[in-house]
Protein backbone atom coordinates (compact mmCIF):
# COMPACT_ATOMS: atom_id res chain seq x y z
CA UNK A 1 0.00 0.00 0.00
CA UNK A 2 1.24 3.40 -0.89
CA UNK A 3 0.52 6.62 0.81
CA UNK A 4 -1.18 8.72 -1.89
CA UNK A 5 -2.14 12.35 -1.69
CA UNK A 6 -5.64 11.25 -0.83
CA UNK A 7 -4.54 10.06 2.54
CA UNK A 8 -3.14 13.40 3.39
CA UNK A 9 -6.28 15.06 2.12
CA UNK A 10 -8.47 12.85 4.27
CA UNK A 11 -6.31 13.72 7.25
CA UNK A 12 -6.64 17.35 6.35
CA UNK A 13 -10.43 17.06 6.13
CA UNK A 14 -10.60 15.41 9.51
CA UNK A 15 -8.42 18.07 11.07
CA UNK A 16 -10.48 20.81 9.50
CA UNK A 17 -13.74 19.31 10.79
CA UNK A 18 -12.37 19.00 14.29
CA UNK A 19 -11.22 22.60 14.16
CA UNK A 20 -14.65 23.72 12.94
CA UNK A 21 -16.43 21.81 15.68
CA UNK A 22 -14.09 23.30 18.25
CA UNK A 23 -14.70 26.79 17.00
CA UNK A 24 -18.42 26.31 17.34
CA UNK A 25 -18.51 24.77 20.78
CA UNK A 26 -15.75 26.52 22.69
CA UNK A 27 -16.45 29.85 24.37
CA UNK A 28 -12.97 30.89 25.37
CA UNK A 29 -11.73 33.14 22.61
CA UNK A 30 -8.18 31.88 23.04
CA UNK A 31 -9.25 28.33 22.41
CA UNK A 32 -11.34 29.52 19.51
CA UNK A 33 -8.23 31.06 18.02
CA UNK A 34 -6.44 27.75 18.48
CA UNK A 35 -9.26 26.05 16.59
CA UNK A 36 -8.79 28.52 13.80
CA UNK A 37 -5.12 27.58 13.77
CA UNK A 38 -6.12 23.95 13.48
CA UNK A 39 -8.26 24.72 10.46
CA UNK A 40 -5.50 26.77 8.88
CA UNK A 41 -3.11 23.87 9.41
CA UNK A 42 -5.54 21.53 7.76
CA UNK A 43 -5.62 23.83 4.76
CA UNK A 44 -1.82 24.05 4.79
CA UNK A 45 -1.62 20.29 4.70
CA UNK A 46 -3.91 20.13 1.70
CA UNK A 47 -1.83 22.79 -0.06
CA UNK A 48 1.38 20.88 0.45
CA UNK A 49 -0.25 17.58 -0.55
CA UNK A 50 -1.66 19.09 -3.74
CA UNK A 51 1.68 20.71 -4.49
CA UNK A 52 3.41 17.42 -4.05
CA UNK A 53 1.01 15.62 -6.30
CA UNK A 54 1.20 18.25 -9.04
CA UNK A 55 4.91 18.69 -8.63
CA UNK A 56 4.42 22.39 -8.08
CA UNK A 57 6.20 24.59 -5.61
CA UNK A 58 3.26 27.01 -5.55
CA UNK A 59 1.54 24.90 -2.91
CA UNK A 60 4.36 25.50 -0.50
CA UNK A 61 4.47 29.19 -1.34
CA UNK A 62 0.80 29.43 -0.45
CA UNK A 63 1.49 27.80 2.88
CA UNK A 64 4.13 30.39 3.49
CA UNK A 65 1.65 33.16 2.99
CA UNK A 66 -0.95 31.42 5.12
CA UNK A 67 1.61 31.25 7.88
CA UNK A 68 2.21 34.97 7.70
CA UNK A 69 -1.47 35.77 7.69
CA UNK A 70 -2.06 33.40 10.59
CA UNK A 71 0.68 35.08 12.57
CA UNK A 72 -0.80 38.51 11.89
CA UNK A 73 -4.27 37.31 12.79
CA UNK A 74 -3.11 35.82 16.06
CA UNK A 75 -1.26 38.99 16.99
CA UNK A 76 -4.24 41.21 16.39
CA UNK A 77 -6.71 38.74 17.85
CA UNK A 78 -4.77 38.30 21.05
CA UNK A 79 -4.35 42.05 21.36
CA UNK A 80 -8.13 42.34 21.10
CA UNK A 81 -8.56 39.70 23.78
CA UNK A 82 -6.19 41.57 26.06
CA UNK A 83 -7.95 44.87 25.38
CA UNK A 84 -11.36 43.35 26.10
CA UNK A 85 -10.15 41.64 29.26
CA UNK A 86 -9.08 45.02 30.57
CA UNK A 87 -12.65 46.28 30.46
CA UNK A 88 -14.62 43.24 31.35
CA UNK A 89 -14.66 40.70 34.06
CA UNK A 90 -15.13 37.67 31.89
CA UNK A 91 -13.72 37.04 28.47
CA UNK A 92 -15.87 34.35 26.98
CA UNK A 93 -17.12 34.92 23.47
CA UNK A 94 -20.73 34.75 24.62
CA UNK A 95 -20.32 37.77 26.87
CA UNK A 96 -19.63 39.98 23.93
CA UNK A 97 -23.08 40.52 22.53
CA UNK A 98 -23.28 44.29 22.29
CA UNK A 99 -24.17 43.97 18.62
CA UNK A 100 -27.40 42.15 19.41
CA UNK A 101 -30.20 43.57 17.31
Amino acid sequence: MEITANWYLILSAALFSIGAIGLLIRRNPLVMFMCVELMLNAVNLSFVAFGDRLGDIAGQVSVFFVLVVAAAEVVVGLALVVAISRRRATTTADDLSVLRG
Partner: peptide, 10 residues
Amino acid sequence: IILVGAVGVI
Protein backbone atom coordinates in the same frame (compact mmCIF):
# COMPACT_ATOMS: atom_id res chain seq x y z
CA ILE B 1 -0.63 12.38 16.93
CA ILE B 2 -2.29 15.13 14.91
CA LEU B 3 -5.84 13.97 15.46
CA VAL B 4 -5.38 13.24 19.15
CA GLY B 5 -3.80 16.65 19.54
CA ALA B 6 -6.66 18.29 17.67
CA VAL B 7 -9.30 16.57 19.75
CA GLY B 8 -7.30 17.51 22.83
CA VAL B 9 -7.36 21.17 21.82
CA ILE B 10 -11.12 21.29 21.62
